[in-house]
Design a protein around this nucleic acid. Structure first.
Length: 809
DNA sequence: ACGTGTAATTG
DNA sequence: CAATTACA
């Protein structure tokens, strides 16, 4: 390992990239933040390689008659690696070569000779991270190539451009020509916890002024702000492509967009975003999918309103016109400046509000190159950590499936069975222990040494399907994650400052994400680790353990009963009424020592692998089930006295807030009082009061959101939300685009025909049109389902318009 | 573009 | 019944 021309001992690894030398060799570029300064280092002796299953002699004779191969090839070495499937040690040739991008072409020459190859589909920069066992965004020592954990936090800066246009065109149309002047650029950045903003505004309407503006912006960005991360809102489809194009139009070298001034920005590839070597870039819009906003859209304003609570500033004219007026009117200039700064500030504030710092923790844990890992899915992050462990242990990373293989998998797949769910045996119960397995599937994987290396096949007893040697990569990875999560939890208990707590919580969250995401990969057709038999064995073990626990509860002592459970949880009814009553009456939420609980948990742990831990999650003073329906319950905690609702309509976003409030109130009253008759009265009182609210408030509360997932024409069965969109669109001459909405708000208006004919956008509904009966019934219907006699008929004593007339008839 | 299990509504 | 959704 040689770092050529190294001027530094090391630093925070911001990203990895590579350049090609004139003799067609790949040199790795490490981008670092070293003692606060930006620096890059070249590694000149890390080469692309992969493994082939043949002898040295074979390799030589192939090389002799294959010109393409010989040209790429540099040297080879005999080696041994463990095969992922079956875990056998295999002698192989490790072959090194020149250009990384030629690997697919080179491996094909072995495939055509029926020679097996391995790890020929790991991208070069990924290979670098894995082979050096290093982590991004952590401190990298260049002399030892070791990563160490730091508490470093990046400098984040937002970038937002304005152009002289009324934005009637689509982003694509604007970018196509880049015909309009850049009139302003806003930046907002956080350094040492302090937020600063700056607006650069074009003050004259001529080319030279625009050129000067564009140049000064990047001087300022790289000299003064010096960001590690540039964050935008829609920057991938607008700000970056527009800027690059506009720089070209004005004859400015696009390399000013690089902190080193010598590389050009790279457009998105494989679903990534724009890249500028040396700085990380992220478009926040990418993470707003399926976010609930008030108007159902995902503009910066809608998302900022939702997450930052900041109201939109309404402009009476377009951005372009505002800029034009600002050239001669200082008041307008002030407004324009405020507007530019505001958008930049909101964008940088969203970075935190959208929990992006937490995702940086995932990047650190998984060890992927930060520029790519920024765009990883949770599964990809989990898999990358497995790659890191596999390399360390000398196990070959399985090949990614081709498109054809994925298609075949989809066709032939027999999905693994999932978790087991108990039928609730009560409508209502008290003194119930809510227990669950901590990280159930990860602990099963560790406890049984599960993985492709040890799997003997889906035959025989579940517990006997895995060899104990070799230790699998998945089990090792999960074991390490469980240990570090345990460590973080201990640190968290000792943490004093809010900053430390926040950092540790983010880290703990990230570990959990990475651990949990890998199990699902076994059942995912796109994964390298796809194996439904293996997945089925894990879930099968889970079902076995859960059912055993369920039975053991009742063997423990009289009065203990399993009344419900789902996948990794058991709800245990106990005879501890007096002690739990005492807990309930205590003001704080600490657990008074109840020896029976400890004894029960001890009893339940007998026979479990040591890694598996059944934990007491909460104690329900009272709990309600809808008998016969799984995954639905509500309880009040004897510890923190809060009401928790799971699965019911009261927490479902496809029910109106109006109906949800009715159900939530009913649960709240019933759980606390335990009295059906008084609850019933109180619910009726509540509905009366709700109907006395202002028309505006009621209208807001009956507005419900439904998703628009595809082109409305492609729906076989029209949902109210889609039909409300079509209705609104017909009032806008068909100009609306369904893609602008993730969730579309609608209100059902009075009438007798089907809902799809009565769904309207709230703006097109007057209060008198609202079908209030529909919404009251929605609320009452869900209460009626408690199996507790609060029926619809009884509740019809409510006095209000239509129901009054119903009684008069 | 991690997984399965489940309940509910609409037409 | 199928289609659709959102939850655990």
């Amino acid at each position: 390992m040689t770092v050529s021309g190294s001027t530094t001992q090391g630093g925070i690894l911001l990203d990895v990239d590579y350049v090609v030398t004139p003799d067609q060799k790949a040199h790795t570029v490490l981008y670092l933040r070293s003692d606060g300064k930006r620096t890059r280092q070249i590694v000149d002796d890390f080469l692309p390689y992969f493994y082939v299953d043949c002898t040295e002699e074979q390799l030589q004779s192939i090389m002799a008659d294959d010109q393409v191969l010989a040209e790429w090839f540099l040297y080879s070495e005999p080696t041994k690696r463990i095969l992922y499937e079956g875990g056998q040690l295999q002698p192989l040739q490790k072959i090194y070569g020149k250009q990384p991008w030629k690997v697919p072409q080179i491996r094909a020459r072995f495939a055509s000779r029926q020679i097996a190859f391995y790890e020929a589909d790991i991208p070069f920069t990924h290979r670098f991270m894995i082979d050096h066992q290093i982590k991004g965004l952590e401190h990298l020592d260049l002399t030892t190539m070791d990563s160490t954990q730091t508490t470093w936090s990046p400098r984040v800066c937002s970038l937002d451009i304005e152009i002289n246009n009324d934005l009637q065109d689509t982003f694509e149309e604007l970018v196509e020509q880049a015909a309009y002047r850049v009139t302003a650029i806003g930046m907002s950045w956080i350094a040492d916890g302090k937020l600063s903003s700056k607006a650069f505004i074009l003050e004259e309407d001529n080319d030279q002024a625009e050129i000067n503006l564009l140049q000064s912006i990047f001087d300022f960005l790289w000299q003064e702000v010096d960001p590690d991360i540039i964050v935008t809102y829609n920057g991938d489809i607008f700000d970056f492509p527009y800027l690059v194009k506009r720089l070209e139009v004005q004859g400015i070298d696009t390399r000013i967009l690089s902190p080193y001034g010598d590389t050009i920005p790279q457009p998105p590839q494989f679903g990534n975003g724009w890249k500028i070597p040396g700085v990380l870039i992220f478009d926040l819009y990418k993470r707003t999918r399926w976010m609930y906003t008030d108007d159902g859209r995902k503009t910066l304003d809608s998302v900022a309103l939702k997450l930052l609570g900041e109201q939109k500033i309404e402009l009476d004219i377009s951005h372009g016109e505002l800029w034009q007026q600002s050239l001669t009117n200082s008041e307008r200039m002030k407004t324009f400046r405020e507007y530019v700064i505001r958008d930049a500030r909101l964008t940088v504030q969203l970075w935190e509000a959208m929990d992006m710092p937490q995702w940086l923790e995932v990047i650190k844990i998984c060890g992927g190159p930060p520029g790519d890992a920024m765009y990883f899915t949770e599964r990809q992050a989990g898999e990358f950590l497995v790659f890191q462990v596999m390399f360390r242990e000398g196990i070959l990373i399985p090949r990614a499936p081709t498109a054809a293989e994925k298609k075949l998998r989809k066709k032939e797949r027999i999905s693994a069975m999932g978790g087991f769910v108990f039928d609730p045996i009560r409508d209502i119960a008290s003194s119930v222990l809510l227990c669950d397995f901590a990280s159930m599937y990860p602990t099963i994987i560790v406890g049984h040494n599960i993985g492709g290396e040890s799997f003997r096949g889906a035959v025989g007893t579940l517990k006997d399907r895995f060899n104990s040697e070799p230790r699998t990569s998945m089990a090792m990875m999960q074991e390490e994650l469980l240990a570090s999560r345990f460590e973080v939890k201990e640190q968290l208990e000792g943490a004093i400052t809010d900053d430390d707590k926040k950092r540790l919580k983010a880290y703990s969250w990230a570990i959990k994400i990475v651990a949990n995401s890998t199990f699902g990969a076994y059942n995912f057709i796109g994964s390298r680790f796809y194996d439904t038999d293996l997945a089925g064995t894990i879930t099968g073990l889970g079902r076995e353990y859960l059912q055993t626990i369920g039975m053991r509860v009742e063997e423990f002592a009289d009065g203990y009963k399993t009344i419900y459970g789902d996948t990794d949880s058991v709800f245990i009814e106990t005879p501890l009424n007096e002690k739990i009553q005492q807990l309930w009456e205590k003001d704080d939420d600490s657990i008074t020592h109840i020896p029976e609980i400890g004894q029960l948990l001890g009893y339940l742990h007998e026979g479990l692998p040591p890694e598996m831990k059944l934990e007491l999650e909460d104690i329900a003073y009272r709990i309600i089930f809808h008998k016969g329906a799984k995954k639905r319950y509500a309880y009040v905690s004897a510890l923190d006295k809060q009401v928790y609702i799971k699965g019911f309509e009261a927490i479902r976003n496809d029910f109106s807030p109006f109906a949800r409030e009715i159900q939530e109130f009913a649960f709240e009253r019933l759980l606390r009082s335990g009295d059906v008759a008084s609850t019933k009265k109180e619910v009726i009182e509540l509905i009366k009061k709700m109907l006395e609210r202002s028309e505006d408030q009621i209208k807001r509360e009956v507005s419900t959101y439904g998703p628009i997932r595809r082109n409305p024409a492609k729906y076989k069965s029209m949902t109210p939300a889609v039909s409300a969109f079509l209705h609104l669109n017909s009032h806008n001459d068909g100009r609306l685009n369904w893609r602008d909405y993730d969730f579309f708000p609608f209100i059902i208006i009075k009438g007798t025909s089907s809902q799809k004919n009565r769904a309207r956008h709230p703006d097109l509904v007057s209060f008198d049109e609202i079908d209030l009966d529909h919404y009251i019934e929605e609320g009452l219907r869900s209460i009626g389902r408690f199996n507790l006699p609060i029926s619809l008929d009884e509740a019809k004593g409510i006095e209000y318009r239509d129901i009054v007339s119903y009684f008069e008839e």
